[in-house]
Design a binder for these strands. Structure first.
Lengths: 214, 214, 214, 214
DNA sequence: CATGAATGAGTTTTCATTCAT
DNA sequence: GATGAATGAAAACTCATTCAT
């Protein structure tokens, strides 16, 4: 493996180029999901996209740039969705926000399984942390607008938790449909109750918690 | 090169061999956690264990067998722990069981981070599914003994969910200690409340759920 | 390492590639003859052909495929020759056919010693049997067209015998030239007389065989 | 691969040692026939013989010494048989000698297929040539005692040819029994006629050869 | 003598990346 | 831009041989 070239990824100028880049990214995404990032070879990607290996390198001079490009695209799509969501749930109860967020993420991950694959790669490159950070920020924002208001620290924690809960749901996508369905509801309700509990009438708190370990 | 699986994994018969196998597995586990499975080379493993590459292949004729051996070991340790746990929580409330299970898994994963790394590898070999299946079965058992009783289907779901919640907790282990601490408690309490809620006095059920989306 | 046969043998599409493939096969053939199949390394082949090891694997992803490619080529050449021969000897006496076949094979093996080397490798892969079978069929055909006609079963036997006689002749190619010369003639005449004898005037048969062991 | 040790093969002193050596040689011979010399590993040989790899090296410090030991044994057995044969066929007709020799070799090779395998290895070590030379000499002797006498040069040639004819018969040992049987007879009669022809009444020679290419 | 672990040079094979056309 | 051949460092894996007990 020679040192990665410094040449930046060529930006496709014409329509034809943009289509080609899209098909290369699609092929790569599909393969990353099927076999994992490491096990997928550049040659395989090119060939699945019906392109020559040279063409692939024209646009993505280093394998990682493919991952980055795919993730940049998905991150911005997700970001847009979350932004739209933000408008819809402003000033709702945290439980409702969680519910909506849950659905949004579920749909997104179902449509773009490669997102999880690439975000969970070992190693911690900067661009990956950056994407995670941005997502966390956006989700925290979402919860910060809840009414009644959440403690900012909890919003932070939820921003970490919710996406992971989603991954749980995804992991079992290979399971029987019935199980998956139930699982989904269970997770969603768990989250909802959690938030409901924390923001119920504080007076009844201590007495009502049958699980308090104290 | 003839097919890789013809050469059987030698099982060490003398003390010296057993020690070497242990040190090789330890070196491999450490490296898998540090750099990921794919990025770790056999040469590196051998060298970290202070062994010759040939010695490594003597016991683990294919890289995958290392992963399998490590996982087989960890799976049986975890299984033993869960069995012990089962005796301690028999006939407790589901919420309590969840709490105890949560702690048990947390400790196990903290001590054996390689467990998560190897179980989450891309691809779906049989031995990996088998390990997952066994774990699910054991955890479901745990919940099936709860009192008041859970629906068996829910026990199944929880057996899927709890380990994932744990992973969530682990994933963020790179975060600031303060955040991690809070996160941990948040997850645990989420689970506890969820179970508490579902199995509280049934009479007050419908009226008391402030989050019902209906 | 994933199973070796997933990476398909690239077939060269440009002139440059075809030339390289030819030179790789030539280098391999030469080395197989010089040192035997097993003792020849892929590295050595590439280097003798003036190519990088990666280029060799580009076209021959497994060592065996080199042997196969070489044999496929030679087998088709030999087949063509035998077909041509068939036209020349149609309806001749079996002894004459044998003689001509003998010469044809002798020349072929002298020009392509690797043919014998690769056909005689230990193990019995399918492609090797297939080549042998085809050759047998073609030679049997040759003898089936003899006049007077041979019993089909004998044609079959000859198809097995003649190539081996040739090998005999080749094996001793390391001997002194004088001996080799005589040997060659001896083998050829043995075959000729054998066939002549069996198909002479049947009336004198029994009485004339001075060697009958009866 | 380190340089071959200079330590000579240990000669087994006690009965137990001799038995072990025999079983090691038997295991090696069997494997050499099954998979070829190169493809057979020392470890495999030891394990098939139920011995430790260390024990194998105790008696055969280099892989080649195994081949040599096996061949030395077989060569002397064959030599003894040929010597016995010599007494039985003294002063017989060359055709009869050939016939008897044919049978003798056939039986020997059927019983000891490893003989052919090891004698035909690529490369030309001295010990191998020596064995071939000795065999040739002995067979030439056989024919030199024929009556009427053969030209010494022809005896030499036959000494080269007959063993090869035998190999022909062996090569097809995988064929259907019927074919094999017929093949055997065909080869034997070919040889018999060849010798009969050459030593018939010289007066009728020219006229009687229907295949003379002149 | 026996044994089984250990060794490491040598082989095959892979694949990200570059180059010539 | 496009293509397909070329590259070679690095990885996986082998196995004859040696060594410690």
């Amino acid at each position: 493996m020679r040192p990665a070239s410094l040449r930046p990824a060529l930006l496709p100028q014409r329509e034809r180029g943009r289509a080609r880049v899209a098909s290369l990214m699609a092929a790569a995404a599909a393969l990353f999901v099927e076999k994992g990032y490491d096990a997928t070879t550049m040659t395989e990607i090119a060939s699945r996209a019906g392109a020559a290996i040279g063409s692939l390198y024209l646009f993505f001079p280093v394998k990682q740039t493919l991952a980055q490009a795919i993730m940049a695209d998905l991150a911005s799509r997700l970001s847009a969705r979350l932004e739209a969501l933000q408008d819809r749930v402003r000033a709702r109860h945290a439980a409702e926000i969680a519910d909506a967020l849950f659905d949004e993420l579920a749909q997104f991950l179902a449509e773009n399984p490669v997102y999880a694959v690439l975000l969970d790669l070992p190693g911690d490159e900067d661009w990956r942390s950056a994407i995670r950070l941005q997502r966390r920020g956006q989700i925290a924002q979402l919860f910060n607008q809840a009414s009644p208001a959440l403690a900012p620290a909890q919003a932070e924690r939820l921003a970490l938790i919710v996406p992971q809960l989603m991954r749980t749901a995804m992991v079992v996508s290979g399971q029987s449909p019935a199980l998956r369905e139930g699982l989904f509801d269970e997770l969603r309700s768990m989250l909802r109750h959690h938030l409901a509990w924390q923001h119920r009438d504080p007076l009844s708190s201590a007495a009502a918690d049958p699980t308090s370990s104290a």
